Simulated assay, not measured.
Amino acid sequence: MSDDAELRRLRWRCRRGMRELDQLMLRYLDGRWPAADDAERGVFLRLLDTEDDKLWRWFMGRETPQEADLDALVHRILDLPH
C-alpha cells in the first residue's frame, strides 16, 4: 500500500464521531506519525482499535490504560502542540 493510501486510510480511522477524539487522533497522525518508528506505529494502531468510550476516559484522565505502551502514547498525544 502506498504511503498516501495508508495515510488516507488512517485519517478515516481517526474519525471517531466525537470531535475531541478526532482532533487528538489527527493531531498525532499529522504531527507524530511520520517520525514514529514501527513499534510506536503499532501502538497507535492498537489505540485506533480501542472503543471510543474507553479512549475518552483515558484522554480525560478518568482511567489509565493497563498496558504501559498505550498509557505512554496517550500521554504523548496529550502533550503534542495544538
Rank of each mutant, 00 (worst) to 15 (best):
M1H: 11
S2A: 10
S2V: 07
D3M: 13
D3Y: 13
D3E: 14
D3V: 15
D3P: 07
D3L: 15
D4P: 00
D4I: 14
D4F: 08
A5N: 10
A5H: 10
A5V: 14
E6C: 04
E6N: 04
R8T: 09
L10S: 01
L10I: 06
L10T: 03
R13Y: 05
C14F: 03
R15W: 11
R15C: 10
R16N: 12
G17Q: 10
G17I: 11
M18I: 15
E20T: 11
L21A: 05
L21Y: 07
L21E: 04
D22K: 11
Q23L: 15
L24S: 00
L24Q: 01
L24C: 00
L24D: 00
L24F: 01
M25W: 02
L26I: 14
L26R: 05
R27M: 04
Y28F: 07
Y28W: 14
Y28E: 00
L29K: 05
L29D: 02
D30C: 10
D30I: 15
D30H: 14
R32N: 06
R32I: 05
W33T: 02
W33I: 05
W33L: 04
P34Q: 12
P34S: 08
P34T: 11
A35T: 14
D37L: 13
A39K: 13
R41Y: 08
R41C: 10
G42H: 09
F44H: 08
F44V: 03
F44W: 08
L45I: 08
L45P: 00
L45Q: 10
L47F: 04
L47P: 06
L47I: 09
L48T: 06
L48D: 01
L48I: 08
D49A: 12
T50K: 07
T50A: 01
T50S: 03
E51M: 09
D52W: 06
D53T: 13
D53Q: 14
L55R: 01
W56L: 12
W56V: 06
W56S: 05
R57E: 01
R57L: 06
W58K: 07
W58I: 09
F59S: 01
F59H: 00
F59M: 02
G61D: 05
R62M: 12
R62V: 08
R62P: 02
E63Y: 04
E63Q: 09
T64W: 04
T64P: 00
P65A: 01
P65K: 04
P65F: 00
Q66A: 02
E67V: 13
A68R: 09
A68C: 01
A68M: 05
D71V: 02
A72S: 04
A72M: 05
V74T: 01
V74N: 02
H75I: 00
R76N: 06
R76Q: 14
R76G: 01
L78S: 09
L78M: 11
D79T: 12
D79A: 14
D79V: 07
L80Q: 06
P81L: 08
P81S: 12
H82S: 12
H82W: 13
